[in-house]
Amino acid sequence: MQLPLTYVLSFSALLFGIGLYGALTLQNAIRILMCIEIMLNAVNVNLIAFSRYLSPLQPAGQAFVIFVMTVAAAEVAVGLAIILMIARRRDTIDIDRMNLLKW
């Protein structure tokens, strides 16, 4: 007995939506990075669910998750370094005040 695939996909869509909402509405740059992590993880859930339900003989989806994790780790490291630099230079991590390239 197992849940239908659509339930798992809906769960991951919900998770992605929460991450997207946070990334679009929050002001703290660190928390925006966290929301991006949530979105990447929602994508991972999708990949794992497809790999488990649709092509269990070739677990390429799971290998793909490893690569997504790698890129996410690199993204977090570089993103946090950039935030640290911005905090050193401008004394804030509020994205509303990082508007040098905005208009």
Binding site: G19, L26, R31, M34
Partner: peptide, 8 residues
């Protein structure tokens, strides 16, 4: 889901 909501 609860954790994600907590982050926000």
């Amino acid at each position: 889901i609860g954790g994600a909501l907590g982050v926000i």
